[in-house]
Design a protein around this nucleic acid. Structure first.
Lengths: 251, 251
DNA sequence: AAGTGGTCTAGACCACACC
DNA sequence: GTGTGGTCTAGACCACTTA
């Protein structure tokens, strides 16, 4: 019942569909099967591995979801031609990220006030005209150095129990993650020179290159928060490991 | 045979396992089911949707792969607590990205020479001591402005037919993507001030904040290329849309 | 018209974790 | 032990696409 697997193409994970997947994946990654190459049909793989169609189907669907192959009815499955590099960036919660590096973490609230939603809030986030916005400015420290400067706007009406939050002691990002655990977000990453004010707050020379991350967050279509984080360029690097993909794998 | 689906929880995609998946996903994203909440058992969902176990299994496996739930034998499936934000960054090929924006693209090779692998090549990329490295420096233009400056090292011995490439006319990234379509890579994103030399080449004032992307590429464990790209900070923004995840969904 | 993949069924055995 | 999820089978019907 077992298919004889060449030791060099042996994969971690013992289930048959994982072995089939890995075998094909390695042929693609090694360049043995180039873009456009037709993968064996499901019925051919069934015969090769002596298994049910559901098993090879699971392997091929998994490769299709990963963007390595394209499946076309009546035609077969084909190795895709990668066009964009799709990188999975891990962006940890700031506090957790600093602690994970073994550094001391400190948080400081600089400023907090409530006001009416601005025109920008309405236009970029779809906030209600009558909505109230909580505007926060705070700093994150890693081992006594300023690690990040945070400008945040929270749509008060969309966040239940926000009155219970004490942002003098808890970073708003952490509080929100605890209370609105799942959400959708949009991210922009850019490089900007620190002006005099930003430089003072980050305790770096004026003009220092900073990594600027803008993030907007929604839940069920309703805007929750918008935040801009300034990182001194030498302190924060975003690192990731990936494989190219053909088209957006994410929906 | 059909389960009666509430119109508000109706999903795109008509297959049953997609509907089951979407229904559960919306309960999680809306906050109705908070982290730690136990999803109904597979046999309960079978009864609710009057379908086979494979069908609910496919829906739950898909949610587990997406990082929204955690599955534990004997215990059940539970909504996960997100800890890191995992963003899928789309990083297009430079030429394709500029053309996609409707801008004119131009490429210029500044410098090319072959030399022995340096100590850094060996240490950071695992290049062979006797290996030859092709060192390139080039610029990418979008509508007459300098869009990016590229420093690249290619491990000549690992890339067949590289002698056929004409990097005076074709950007090395495009040539490599055509000839080594699938690979693994590691990416670092940082912000740096342009020094005098970089600023001159980018045609921006000295000290301008730049987005610096370092990428190293392997195929089947063998180093292919390492590249550093400098983007003027105001020109290139990396944009992405995502949902938080619990732990690394990528392997 | 034919043959592919997409989906689904109604079973089954097993590993594992918890009791 | 007991019950969960993990995996697999041997069928089946259908939609779609392409030859």
């Amino acid at each position: 019942m077992q298919h004889i697997v060449n030791p060099t193409e042996r994969a971690r994970g013992d289930s048959l569909h994982q072995r089939i997947r890995s075998t094909i994946e390695q042929r693609i990654l090694s360049g043995e099967w180039r873009p456009g190459h037709r993968i064996p049909f499901e019925h051919e793989l069934m015969a090769e591995y002596r298994c049910a169609r559901m098993t090879v189907n699971k392997a091929l669907q998994s490769l299709a979801e990963a963007g390595l192959i394209e499946r076309r009815r009546r035609a077969g499955s084909f190795v895709r031609r990668p066009s964009v590099h799709s990188a999975v960036l891990a962006i940890p919660d700031i506090q957790a990220g600093i602690l994970a590096r073994g550094l001391a973490y400190r948080y400081e609230l600089l400023h907090a006030r409530r006001c009416r939603a601005s025109r920008a809030d309405r236009e970029t986030m779809g906030a209600l005209p009558t909505g109230t916005v909580l505007v926060l400015r705070c700093r994150h420290f890693a081992a006594r150095r300023v690690f990040a400067l945070e400008h945040r706007r929270i749509m008060v009406d969309a966040v239940p129990h926000i009155g219970d939050a004490d942002f003098a002691t808890e970073p708003p990002g952490s509080w929100l993650l605890r209370h609105i655990p799942w959400h959708e977000a949009e991210l922009q990453i850019a490089a900007m020179n620190a002006d005099a004010e930003i430089a003072t707050l980050l305790e770096v020379p004026s003009g220092t290159a900073c990594l600027v991350v803008d993030r907007q967050t929604w839940r069920a279509g309703a805007a929750i928060t918008a935040v801009r984080l300034w990182f001194p360029g030498d302190l924060q690097k975003l690192v990731t490991r990936f494989t190219p993909t053909s088209e957006a794998g994410a929906k």
